[in-house]
Design a protein around this nucleic acid. Structure first.
Lengths: 128, 128
DNA sequence: ACGGAAAACCGATTGACGGTCGGTTTTCCG
DNA sequence: CGGAAAACCGACCGTCAATCGGTTTTCCGT
């Protein structure tokens, strides 16, 4: 799923929190990059058709909202990379970790480790 | 770094092992997808300019070879995703792991854990 | 119910970029 | 040095995001 620059920015706008209609989104972006309301509208529509935003009529306008949170989306993109280059899931993760590990704080490493530990023993019901 | 379909396939051809000139690569792809030698040549040249293949004149022709192995490249792509969506390295990895973990074998999980352990205590030399 | 504003929708254009390939130039080897 | 082999150049096509003017639809207030 390759997105254009404006699409990425709009998606992040929604991940920042609030739902919004085209007019509101346009008001937000108009300052930092210009562009007409129409441009925003078609970008929202494109993101909607791609399944990345949901929407709901409210009065005249559609109110858009995220359909997938950042974490899920990034996860999907990483999976996609693995598939694109025919890397099995394990080596995809190892590649990711090898490339990124140097930038992790101790706290983040610990968080990773907790996640792995949780996945390792799914039968052990100490929480959830 | 977004690559086209042919570019991906050519890159994987080189990751499969052997170095090769355009003619050899063309011979390989001609069967499964057609296309002229010229098409292969410009694809190789594009991958070269993108830094993904190296090359060296040998007689008339360039012999191309990978400039980055699959693992390094996938790692770079994952980093890029994180940057594109302004996710910090830690949450990028967590997103990747969450999305993929269900597809991992126990062996692969163990490998991951060893990697993390190694990163956790870089001073402790118990194995290489 | 209706008239107008607000928003959606449509269609055209532009700019990147990958893929494709014909034709020209360069390179090297016998 | 001549010819073949390969690189290189330039053009064209298809796709897709961004852009925006113009038209149609929708709804709300009177």
């Amino acid at each position: 799923m390759q997105l254009g620059e404006l699409e990425k920015q709009v998606l992040q706008y929604f991940w920042q929190g609030r739902d919004a209609d085209a007019k509101t989104v346009h008001a937000h972006f108009e300052k930092r990059r210009g562009g007409t309301l129409n441009t925003i509208q078609s970008t929202l529509d494109r993101l909607f058709r791609k399944g990345l935003l949901g929407r709901e009529k409210q009065g005249h306008a559609f109110i858009y909202r995220t359909a997938m949170d950042r974490q899920a989306f990034i996860g999907k993109l990483v999976e996609e990379i693995g598939a694109d280059y025919e890397a099995d899931p394990g080596s995809t993760l190892i590649a990711a970790f090898s490339s990124i590990s140097g930038k992790l704080s101790d706290e983040q490493i610990a968080a990773l480790e907790r996640l792995i530990e949780a996945r390792r023993e799914p039968a052990e019901g100490h929480d959830t």
